[in-house]
Design a protein around this nucleic acid. Structure first.
Lengths: 240, 240
DNA sequence: TCCATCATATAACATATGTGAGTGCGAGGC
DNA sequence: GCCTCGCACTCACATATGTTATATGATGGA
């Protein structure tokens, strides 16, 4: 049952047969726990297993020599943080636990077996990495063409919907366990500017953020400010 | 034989059996030609086939209501410009022909057949979309954390290597059939600033660019300026 | 041959965002 | 109960990049 969140997520895209569910659950070799601020996978590793996040928040990131950092993805429960390492082999980035994380480990040998024997399940796993790609593209357009404020609004909208899709929202509030510095690394902004932008969203009455709890106060206006349309998240159900 | 460039590209990653090659070639239903500045696929489409670029340059892009545009990928011969539509179903972006393009069309029914019958080939196609994702991540870090000049240098290095991998370089020069406005849409810059940055790279003796022909005059320094390391392109050969 | 069009190039100016420094608060260690 | 330490927050100032406008030259159509 430990594969719960992944099942939940794959089933958003398409129906799974009972056998497929069983195969997925059997693919998990063990459960791992990673402390906050530790790497789940290191850049440059050649992992022989992939990590499915069951609980907690994680981030994919790249670091430059001089310490600048860019976060390229934020992961929430149900996300396969490094499914791509199955075929890409070398990690071109690290994956960091932003909070304590509970993780289901899936050996690549099991993934290889799935690709050999379960075409439909294979397509759903492939699809999973394609949605990652779609999110990357959306982030690229937000980074390239939105103001810092709009980008922040966009990010919050996305994260809300992704958490909502795995049942991790509480009304209009979500847990956002990032520091402002980490948010800056995510959006490509300085920490100072992240703070300015947050003040603005608060002053406009769009969000409240205290401790870890972020509440969307005006969903419609936040969406407008962030020029957000959720189609790229592929949260609808289709045959694949 | 029309699948030539794709074979070339898939074989960079791993060896293809003769049967796999045959299957791929038979998957192509027809050859299409698309004029420059026309869409190869429209945003919002639900295509029933995917497009493999044989000749020409193409760009994936998103447009905002007010006309701002962001290009999220530049495609060169050998690239599958919309393989993801096989599973994502709806196009979350358009694909534009930057030059006249010759394209091999692969029906999704054939892809489905491949996933059912040819696991290894399926993994290589999946891998292809994963490399797209790796490039997206690299672009995200370049957008978020590099100066405009460094970003431009990085982009040029990448494009050079990708063209080189499919035999489309001529010594140190490549064809770069983009306008400065298109380059701006690619890098998230204004046209004016693209021009400034190009002047700088020229003044520094790093590149020459006349007409379509871009020559890298000082590869080492260009790499340094762009903080470029090519591992993310996955141009080495491994078993998958 | 002329004209319209488009791309490059440059200038003057506006502004969004970065930088460096410092304050204050709250949590956790001893 | 004190002392760090990290984090949120703010200020003054610097600068990279955007904006608007204009000139110039190449290209292709009528």
């Amino acid at each position: 049952m430990s594969g719960g969140p992944l099942l939940l997520k794959l089933e958003q895209h398409d129906r799974l047969s009972d056998e497929e569910k069983r195969v997925l659950e059997n693919a998990i070799s063990r459960i791992r726990v990673v402390e906050a601020d530790e790497d789940i996978v290191h850049e440059g590793d050649h992992p022989s297993e992939s990590n499915l996040l069951l609980d907690g928040f994680a981030a994919r990131y790249k670091i430059f020599s001089n310490g600048r950092r860019q976060i390229t993805a934020i992961h929430v429960p149900g996300d396969f943080v490094d499914l791509h390492s199955f075929l890409l082999r070398a990690m071109d980035h690290g994956v960091l636990a932003l909070t304590p994380c509970r993780i289901a480990v899936v050996p690549h040998t099991m993934l290889e077996r799935i690709t050999a024997e379960h075409p439909h399940l294979t397509r759903l796993l492939w699809l999973n990495t394609l949605v990652d790609g779609a999110i990357h593209r959306e982030w690229l357009t937000a980074m390239g063409r939105l103001s810092a404020t709009a980008h922040m609004a966009h990010f919050i909208c996305e994260l809300f919907l992704r958490l909502n899709a795995v049942g991790r929202t509480d009304g209009d509030t979500i847990q956002l366990p990032l520091t402002q510095a980490e948010l800056g690394d995510t959006l490509g902004l300085s920490t100072v500017h992240v703070n300015r932008v947050l003040q603005e969203l608060r002053k406009e009455g769009l969000i409240r953020w205290q401790g870890d709890a972020l509440t969307i106060l005006d969903w419609e206006r936040l969406k407008t400010v962030g020029e957000f349309t959720p189609t790229y998240l592929n949260l609808q159900h289709e045959d694949r």
